[in-house]
Computed example of a mutant assay.
Amino acid sequence: MGYLLQGLFGERSLTKVAGLFNQQSQAENTMAQVLSTAGLQAGQVRLLGPQHAYAPRREIFSRSMEPEPTGMARTFFQSHIVFGAAGGVLGLGVFAWFFRAAHPMILSSPLLSFIALVGFGTTFGMLLAGLLSLRPDHIRMITHVRSALRHNHWAVVAHPVDPTQTEKVKAVLEREASEVLTTL
């Protein structure tokens, strides 16, 4: 399943894991543990403090939470192509099923029925892809981390690239952090 999702998404890191801390020293120590224990590279783990929530340039916070903007663009295009095509094929299947069943509405106007069913299937597939591209799980995490930073907390945000790294990061953060947040 993970392999299929990796093919659909353009990002290397599909899961984000964040740990919230009350003190900077706790966060820094935990970040070092995550780097050594989970086998992540330095670019995969970010330390965010209260100053990042109020930084005049919001790109600092955005790049820390979502470091792969080109991967996000690939996710947008790939998901729309895949889900749009799947919706079109599903619409074609519905048309064929109704046509073989000799449904009177389909038989009275086969071309318009074909266009409508395939068109609606493609449209709904692309709408689903748009929802997937919005990444509601990431939005929830980003909002929660930003709120914690505004209340003078610290955050360690990790971007593991496989399930093994994800489990190791979660284990370290669950031991050390006051709160742990994860995305899909």
Rank of each mutant, 00 (worst) to 15 (best):
G130F: 04
L149M: 09
L134N: 07
F120T: 05
L149K: 12
A116G: 02
L128H: 09
R150Y: 11
H153L: 13
H138I: 06
H153E: 11
H144Q: 15
P136Q: 10
S147N: 15
T122G: 01
W154P: 10
S147W: 11
F120R: 00
G130C: 06
G119Y: 00
G121H: 01
I115F: 02
T122S: 01
F114R: 01
L134V: 05
L127N: 01
L128G: 07
V118M: 02
I142H: 10
S133C: 03
V145Q: 07
T122C: 05
R150S: 12
L117N: 04
D137L: 09
G130L: 09
R140T: 15
L134E: 03
F124V: 10
H138P: 04
V118H: 00
G130T: 07
F124A: 05
T143G: 14
I115E: 00
L127S: 03
L127Y: 01
N152A: 15
R146C: 09
S133I: 03
H138R: 14
G130A: 08
H153T: 14
P136A: 08
G130Y: 06
I139H: 12
F124E: 05
W154Q: 05
G130D: 07
H153M: 13
W154M: 10
P136E: 10
L127R: 01
S147Q: 14
L132Y: 13
D137W: 06
I115V: 07
L132F: 13
G130V: 05
H144F: 11
R146V: 08
L132E: 03
W154F: 15
I115T: 03
P136H: 09
F124N: 13
L117V: 03
I139S: 11
H151Y: 12
T122N: 00
G119K: 00
R135E: 05
F114S: 02
I139Q: 11
F124R: 08
A148T: 11
G125C: 03
A129N: 04
F120N: 01
M141R: 11
V118E: 00
R135Q: 10
T123G: 01
A116Y: 02
F114I: 02
R135K: 14
M141C: 05
L149F: 05
F114H: 00
R146D: 08
L128N: 09
T122M: 04
R150H: 10
A116M: 06
N152V: 14
R146A: 12
V145Y: 14
I139N: 13
N152L: 12
T143C: 13
G119R: 00
L149R: 09
L128Y: 11
S147A: 15
G119P: 01
P136W: 11
A148L: 08
G130P: 03
G121C: 03
L131R: 10
F114C: 01
S147I: 10
L128A: 13
R135Y: 08
D137A: 12
G119I: 02
L117K: 05
H144G: 08
T123V: 06
L127M: 03
H151A: 15
G119A: 02
D137N: 12
G121E: 02
L128K: 10
S133R: 04
V118K: 01
P136L: 11
D137G: 05
R146M: 13
R140S: 13
A129Q: 04
T123D: 03
S133A: 09
M126Y: 02
I139E: 08
V145P: 08
L149G: 08
G125V: 05
I139G: 07
W154I: 13
T123C: 07
D137I: 07
L134A: 07
